[in-house]
Design a protein around this nucleic acid. Structure first.
Lengths: 211, 211
DNA sequence: GAATTTTTTGGCACGGAGTGCCTGTTTGGC
DNA sequence: GCCAAACAGGCACTCCGTGCCAAAAAATTC
């Protein structure tokens, strides 16, 4: 972490940020072990040992083994939402969503977070590993809730308006489906970015539901 | 089950249906125990005993404790998709989705499946119970895949077309969000049916994403 | 209908997951 | 240096989930 971060009012405290860093660090270790040995063959003790902590301490950071990858996935969606909030307000919602995604994926390539190759490998492991699938879906469900206030602010509505909820849900679903298509290596998908662009453009056009 | 069922070509075998019945039965027992005592306070042995089977046998029907409610949730979405397939083709997609939902909820009120009050109670338990949340989301993710071929058939496209995937994902998300709104008892929601109708109409109009 | 094969069920033992409780160790303010 | 609060670790214990083998039940064959 090289960013010079002032404490700021809405900003999490130093302790909380340290905690998040630890979680991310453990998450990276787990991702490596899972891809190397598989999910079942990796014990929580392995992850704890690899992270230089005791088993009991691991459980102070994660409620369950299957939660271990959540910080890694969540970092990606979190970053996307944050960049959406920073997008110029005159941009249309879909354009902003796409621009935010592009900025996020470009930036996270050079900095911390999860790199695309690893994310892809993990997503491919999801088939046949219910625990993985569940984590992936839970992270996206959380992302939906994070998206709501940002979308609400852009369109000038309340975060719990039905229209805002649905916009968040739809946008989020589009990104999820795009990444799932990209992960399995569908022929017409050249990059995650392209997949997301296609999906967002499709829902922006109304798609099959609004003919 | 009192329906006189011929074997039919696409129909599952008797053994498979017996198995499904057993799963549903156990699912109902678990739903009762969870609502009575809470999720954590209910052990798998309780569920097995309540279902008249040994613990080891339970694990021949379910891979994990958190999977126990899946048949109950899945029966609802499965029924919805089946009725969509039976809707007259000249009906618009959104109208058909809504009609199928109405038929499903009306019919399952008198026959087997899960009744609304219990579903609502279980959904309300989801807050603070990650395992529940995950199951709910996984069921809806599966529903998305079941929806694809049916939608594809209606609009005359391939099931793995991006547009079909997104329509399935969006429709499914709309229903999920509607039910989540209904479950928490939002003021502007009088019934699950009304919530779903509102949500589907909103996405049919294009919503905030297609202004 | 008796014998046999196949499927289903249950008991047992075992390792990993997850937690309550208590003891050490670090951190930070004085 | 002293004390308090937060954090890490060890230990014991319960529950989850599974491999393995034996008993029971169901289907099949003669």
């Amino acid at each position: 972490m090289t960013t010079t971060a002032r404490r700021g009012p809405g900003r999490p405290s130093l302790t909380e940020r340290r905690r998040e860093d630890t979680r991310t660090e453990v998450s990276r270790v787990a991702a490596r072990l899972f891809t190397e040995r598989g999910y079942d063959a990796t014990t929580v003790e392995d992850i704890a040992a690899g992270s230089g902590m005791a088993l009991r301490t691991f459980y102070r950071y994660f409620r369950a083994k299957e939660e271990t990858l959540a910080p890694l996935f969540a970092a990606a969606t979190r970053d996307w939402v944050d960049r959406l909030a920073d997008c110029p307000p005159e941009l249309g919602l879909v354009d902003a969503l796409l621009a935010a995604y592009r900025a996020s994926v470009r930036h996270s390539r050079v900095t911390n977070g999860i790199d695309e190759a690893q994310l892809r490998a993990l997503l491919r492991m999801m088939e046949g590993h219910p625990a993985f699938r569940a984590t992936w879906l839970v992270v996206h469900r959380d992302s939906e809730d994070q998206l709501r206030p940002v979308i609400a602010a852009r369109v000038g509505a309340a975060p719990d308006d039905l229209a805002v909820r649905l916009a968040a849900g739809t946008a989020n679903t589009a990104v999820r489906i795009a990444m799932e298509r990209w992960a399995v290596g569908e022929a017409s998908v050249r990059s995650a970015e392209e997949a997301v662009a296609q999906a967002l453009r499709e829902v922006a056009s109304g798609g099959l539901l609004a003919p």
